[in-house]
Design a protein around this nucleic acid. Sequence first.
DNA 1: AATTATTAGTTGCAATTGCAACAAGCAACT
DNA 2: AGTTGCTTGTTGCAATTGCAACTAATAATT
Lengths: 159, 159
Amino acid sequence: MIESVMHMPGDDPLRAIGVIAKALDGIANIEFKQFDLTRGQYMYLSRICEEPGLTQTQLGERIKVDRATATRAIQQLEAHGFIRRENDDQDRKQKHVWPTEKANQVYPRIRAENEHSTQIALQGFSATEQQQVKQLLLRMQQNVSDNWDFVKRGGVRKY
Amino acid sequence: MIESVMHMPGDDPLRAIGVIAKALDGIANIEFKQFDLTRGQYMYLSRICEEPGLTQTQLGERIKVDRATATRAIQQLEAHGFIRRENDDQDRKQKHVWPTEKANQVYPRIRAENEHSTQIALQGFSATEQQQVKQLLLRMQQNVSDNWDFVKRGGVRKY
DNA sequence: AATTATTAGTTGCAATTGCAACAAGCAACT
DNA sequence: AGTTGCTTGTTGCAATTGCAACTAATAATT
């Protein structure tokens, strides 16, 4: 009985991360419809505005989406005038992605929404706690990135 | 220039949460294919095994998915023998969800994967830091839940 | 130099997702 | 009791996602 309680995932950090992410993604998708952004596009658009010239592969890796998914999302953003694409000068296999003026107008709205969600999420946190959670989350992100790459490329984790 | 650096989302906690979640979800979906689980089903199955008898609505709220999505995922799990559904005794609008033996056999594998991913994510964390991040994340989850509900039901956030 | 292996982006196919509308059931009001 | 409003689960439709296969380009090997 006590053991059962000990092992219940009620305090599972990864689950909390999953739920928070899902909630905020759901909120964002609803709120960004007014800017002509479809599901998930805000993630791509943010990255492209912050790091103009990223290749498609780099973009997909930052967001942790499948290459096919990245391609199609980027195609849509291009079709709706948010971005433009250009081949790399040295390596014609690669394409770089640049924001258009349309994107740069929407980006501050994305930031505003994100700040608001951040305020909500960190409500009741002291300044120290805010710093702490930021640092801890960044370390976690670094910790899991290689695993995603490994498994995505066909690697099999042992456990 | 300095201002621009200050406002760069490099230390955005919500973004880190989104990336971590996406990475771990991607990994989990790949790894659970061997158990006949399709995309995202592990989230539902875990909840159903841990809280047998949840209604569909409760389940969807815990995971933060759309009602239609929950319905369809649950239908699939039922069709593949992982769960069974029953109407509520008092309110025939509601359906409760129960795990089958098949589900109870798979659940420990889901837990094992989750434990492994947790180990990876928390690599290099002291015991104190582990406790900290768990607590902070739980509080964040609580902070955002009402917002999800509000926006999902049509509420409009001001910011 | 020629061949083989790997990589980046793309597309077909099928599954999943979410909005909107609907039906059935229950709650609240008159 | 009858009417209106709300809730739960479902379905149609269209968009998104991810696996697998493909093409073109580049890297590595022979």
